[in-house]
Design a binder for these strands. Structure first.
Lengths: 224, 224
DNA sequence: TTATTCAGGATTGGATACATTGTACAATTT
DNA sequence: AAATTGTACAATGTATCCAATCCTGAATAA
């Protein structure tokens, strides 16, 4: 009888997925700015992999719309215009309204308790003005709420769109005024969730996303 | 002086894209039913290509959500549940409402004339009960209207969702009652477009998509 | 009979080699 | 000098090769 421990069975992701995530992260954070050309041989070498898995990763990024494939020229990181940001938030807002009923319906007291824990961590980050921490907490907070839905496909659309704007989240959070207001709204959201107040949550969330969009647009416009 | 004709410069797509489209088509039409395993060597041979481009095509399908990747087992065609169809139509409807204002704003008399040409072709197909032709005309009709918008990202979401339900369009059109009603509504849509009646178009489109959803759901439920 | 082991084939993961295409720039021609 | 051609280099497109893993099923042991 085998009495040892089970090895995690080398549940390693394929290397192509590692490459995919690394590249995606680089694009989203702006490390790879729009217009950058991704030359296969260069990045294969840099990631210490061969071209085959790297190319598979590029094909995924292509379908994500993060890079553009130019016939026989390879891929180039795509640019984001103000119109893009506008649309992304529009989509996100509309999709959010579609899932909120199911979120209210499915949220448990345990979920709310967990959200409150997150909020208290965010309180600290807010007080200490730790924008990096706040950015990732924000994302976790919204993600947690969204994932309460059972509408997998709508959720996927939201997730996709959010990925696009992650690259701007740092910029958005830099605004002190908005940061404090948003933080307050996050608290209100959990209160409304606890009360199962769909109407109130819809209004607040819609407002919250609109404000976020405005700040984002302003920040991006300023940067130019 | 060169006086001949210009060759189309062999603007051939990469083989991986051909493979991608072929496989996508096979999945969408149901030729490759849900649950089918796609073995790389088998399909590479069948398409007379090597595994490399085929794998790139599979990675695209993976991001499309049409196939599922199982660790070290390759890809399997994903199944569609009733809930999926429900969500797909919900997304499509919501996104449609978001672009209609821009559609009304941008539609030209030339566009309307072209839509009427399409409609007259659809009249014939409708009269002759040529469901295949009607299915592709339907798609072309809706596609033409949607593409009048300048909201590229929202359009992309719509297109993505529509791709998913293409596999059911034949089923939907099979319903004689719905077919005739839908055909009539298509005529009304162009009338409303011509009048630039946003309100009317929103109502009609929303109703149209709802009816389409119902028929689709009924057809799929029956098939089991 | 039933459980187990182990060999062999099948399949995916990844790397490498070769082919094709495109680009840059120098050489040449007008 | 301007335009054109040619050539070398660089990058992508595709095929093939090898390794690692998984599955199957026969052979064997309990």
């Amino acid at each position: 009888m085998y009495n040892g421990t089970f090895e995690p069975a080398a549940e390693s992701k394929p290397i192509r997925d590692v490459a995919y995530e690394r590249l995606k992260h680089a694009i989203i954070t702006g490390e790879l700015p729009a217009g950058s050309r991704i030359v296969e041989t260069v990045y294969a070498e840099q990631l210490h992999i061969s071209r085959t898995p790297l190319r598979e990763a590029l094909r995924k990024l292509e379908r994500d719309g993060l890079v553009e494939y130019v016939l026989r020229h390879g891929v180039v990181v795509r640019a984001f215009t103000v119109a893009d940001i506008e649309e992304i938030f529009t989509i996100r807002n509309a999709m959010m309204m579609l899932i909120l009923p199911s979120v209210i319906e499915r949220v448990s007291d345990k979920d709310i308790a967990e959200l409150r824990v997150l909020l208290s961590e965010m309180d600290v980050a807010q007080k200490e003005e730790d924008c990096d921490a706040l950015a990732s907490f924000n994302r976790a907070f919204h993600s947690k709420i969204e994932h309460l839905t059972d509408k997998k496909r709508i959720l996927r659309v939201i997730d996709d769109q959010e990925e696009y704007i992650t690259r701007f989240s740092a910029v958005t959070i830099a605004s002190i005024v908005r940061r404090s207001k948003a933080h307050q709204e996050h608290h209100e959201m959990v209160d409304l969730l606890e009360k199962r107040d769909l109407d109130g949550l819809e209004k607040l969330m819609s407002h919250h996303l609109d404000e976020s969009k405005m700040t984002c647009l302003a920040a991006v416009a300023n940067r130019k």
